[in-house]
Amino acid sequence: MRMDTHVDQLIRLELPAARAGDRDAYGRIVVACQNTITAIALAIVRDVPSSEDIAQDAFLNAWQHLRRLQNADSFLPWLRQITRNLARDHLRAKVRGPYPVDDMEAAIAAAADPAPSPPEALIDEERTRAAGELISALPEESRETLLLFYREGQSSQQVARLLGISDAAVRKRLSRARQMVRADLLARFGEFAQGSAPAASFAAVVTSALVVASPPAAAAGLLGAGAGAVGAKTLLQIVLGAAASIGIALVIVFASIGFDLRRQLRKAIDAEERQALTRSAVINAGASVGFMIGILFIAHSTTGWILPVLATLVFMGTVFWQSAVVQPRAMARRHALEAAQDPVAAARARRRERWKCRIGLAFGALGGFGGLIAGLVMSGRLTF
């Protein structure tokens, strides 16, 4: 008969709230599972900072897709597999070579974590090398088991439940490791396993990152946080990653608004029309910036679907009003002159413009509200 651990019970208790978007509930799950997940990653990559990066990514990945999980008992096996996949991806990336100089994540990591001094770098390098040698000296199948064994108070039953294997399998792996590895090396490994366990700040960083890595509502489509190139990620790295994503979105928005304004200004008949068109473009750009900042604030400070929907309605209503009402009014005198000169060509041009406007508005509405609904559903703010 299967005996539940404290971790099993906590996951069953907290997972429903976490699936509904409760970051604090998910944070308590992170605290309960962080030893297991970092140990799994460390057994594969054999590097403590990288293992914590990978574990953080695994927790964030699980948070993003938590609504897909129906059975609380499947959470830990699912999280373990996510971690193993990410760790193997990390090793494959290292084999392919270093990141390019212009890699965005490398730039974020460099900005958030300045390079250590030469003595600190030598110490870190020596520790990393020693840790790698210790782990590499163990049988591959025993690494996860031994790391957790020493981190979990040397309880084989606890390790068995956390890794989803039998107590007999744990004891067999421990016995094999003791036969193959010198006693003094095993003792050193035990000290290393306990000393390399994640600190309390690990869970705090992950919980803080939930806001920007997979924030509720529509902001989920705007923000992302990638793995740091070196060392465990800090909250500053994650925020910088979100800022980079928002910056890219703003560049695209401004480029689109600027291109359309430039096209309209070429045909303007006087300074009054140019001023009106420029003012409309500035309003659209300001609405875009305000929407992105507002949706990030809403994601961080509120729950529920009403405020994200209202923010989206205000933003899209502003853009639609400028495009369908204000800009045609600004161009009305030019259109009248064109109609007086060539009524047939002017009427054809106005029909074409109206159809383009309608199609643009339709696609904008479908894309905007489709993304909003998807974000609300995935974040747990909206259920059916």
Rank of each mutant, 00 (worst) to 15 (best):
Q9G: 12
L10S: 15
L10I: 14
E14W: 05
A17H: 15
D24Y: 12
N35P: 13
I37V: 15
I37D: 01
L42R: 06
D47W: 02
V48L: 04
E52Y: 00
I54P: 03
N61P: 03
L66M: 15
Q70N: 08
A72H: 09
P98T: 04
P100G: 11
V101A: 14
D102T: 11
A110H: 05
A110P: 03
A115M: 07
S117L: 12
A121T: 09
R129Y: 00
I135L: 09
S142P: 02
F149H: 10
R151T: 06
R188E: 04
F192W: 07
S201K: 07
A209W: 05
V211S: 08
A217N: 13
A219Q: 07
A220L: 09
G226Y: 06
S245F: 13
F254G: 04
L261M: 06
L261W: 00
Q264W: 09
Q264V: 05
Q275V: 10
S280P: 05
S280Y: 09
N284V: 15
V289T: 10
V289P: 04
F291D: 07
A299I: 07
V326A: 14
M331G: 01
H335K: 14
A340L: 13
V344H: 06
V344L: 06
K356W: 02
G360I: 08
G364L: 05
G368N: 09
S379G: 14
